[in-house]
Amino acid sequence: MNDRDFIIGAGGVTFSFLIYWFMGHPFFIIERIVMFIAIMTFTGTLLFFIRKARRGEEIFLREIPGLKAVEEAVGRSTEMGKPVLFVPGIMDMDQVETVAGVIVLGHVSKMTARYETTLNVPVSRAIVMKAAQDVCKESYLMEGRPDMFHEDMVHYLTDEQFAYAAGVNGIMVREKPAACMYMGKFYAESLILAETGNSIGAIQIAGTASQAQIPFFVTACDYTLIGEEFFAASAYLSQRPELIGGIKGQDMIKIIIIGMIIGGVVLRFLHDGGMIDFNILEFLTVR
């Protein structure tokens, strides 16, 4: 899509919405208009920077030690002749973290194919198993090593949380992988996995958006991708301009949000001081 098509498309969407709005906006929940505008603004910002990156504008992406260490971890496994263990969380493909984890697995499997290192991916959901098998297969094909790929490198253990943790722990203790990566959605099993990995001396990299599990991973792993860093992993590892553009867009949205927070505090202060009637909390509360 070139610039002209993009502008026509965006203009068409905006124009259609305006017509819909002036026709009395049937079915639209008017109390949620602030959230709707926020989503549209943020989406527009993201798309703007994605297009900028696609046009070839250079975008700086700060170094993320955890992602830089992924190749180092695979290299270490290669040198030691031990496998790489990748755990894509315990939830299904309906969770965005699991999808992000599977995408990172694609990059990791490219590295294991390149370095001819064994990859072991125990999964806890059958759909994740199929998705992960496809992703790995393609990575091995792209690296020109289809001979190294075998479907059993991604294998199903169980849907049950602690049974899965026990199974992965067993693999760790028996096979002693040199690198353990935990990328996905985790719950209480996070520390059980990470501490076992720590006890076998593996280099450990974790990435999750499960806020309650981040401290456990920070404590037990060598590197942890905290929240948004995890979602930036795909852009960082692939270095594809449209994905890096999205990261820049995210940063811009963050600046907008910081501005809104400061503005909100000032407006609330003025409201509480009786200087204005406009109540920002009332305005922003989502119903």
Binding site: I39, F42, T43, L46, L47, I50, V96, V99, A100, V102, I103, G106, A131, D134, V135, E138, A209, G227, E228, F230, F231, A232, S234, S238, E242, L243, G246, I247, G249, Q250, I253, K254, I257
Partner: peptide, 20 residues
């Protein structure tokens, strides 16, 4: 923010790695 941006990338077909 990360979930939002990632979801938008999936919905708009910008990120397609999950299907290869």
């Amino acid at each position: 923010m990360g979930i939002f941006a990632t979801s938008i990338r999936y919905i708009l077909g910008i990120e397609k790695s999950y299907i290869g």
